[in-house]
């Protein structure tokens, strides 16, 4: 990896300016802090099932900011989390989660 400099090719696409005259930007190590995003779903005991199962991978606002959706869409969303993304959800918790979503974010369909 020591000799990576080589002759500039001739045929860069028209819109690419090759090897510009300005110096390389300084690339410095970066450390940041991200907000925890650990707020709970509102609703007290009614929200227990969703709080226990739906906060590991994303914050509650992902769900709270969704539009009102039909119950069937919420059912498939919960199953997608389990099947596709590997959400560890107890089968017995699924109805309470879907009920919560249909109540809080349901379109009444």
């Amino acid at each position: 990896m020591r000799h990576l400099i080589f002759v500039v090719g001739t045929s860069f696409a028209a819109l690419l300016a090759s090897t510009p005259a300005w110096p390389a930007p300084a690339i410095s190590s970066t450390t940041v802090e991200l907000p925890a995003g650990d707020a709970l779903f509102p609703g007290g005991p009614e929200a227990d099932a969703i709080n226990n199962n739906c906060l590991a991978c994303h914050s509650a606002d992902m769900v709270v900011n969704q539009p009102a959706l039909p119950r069937s869409t919420w059912e498939s969303a919960v199953h997608k989390m389990i099947k596709v993304y590997g959400a560890p959800v107890e089968d017995s918790d699924v109805p309470a989660i879907v009920d919560y979503l249909a109540k809080v974010k349901g379109s009444g369909q």
Binding site: L4, F6, S18, P20, A24
Partner: peptide, 12 residues
């Protein structure tokens, strides 16, 4: 990163 900075540079 240093290796990449030594390659021909492009901007778009």
């Amino acid at each position: 990163i240093g290796d990449l900075l030594r390659l021909p540079r492009v901007e778009l």
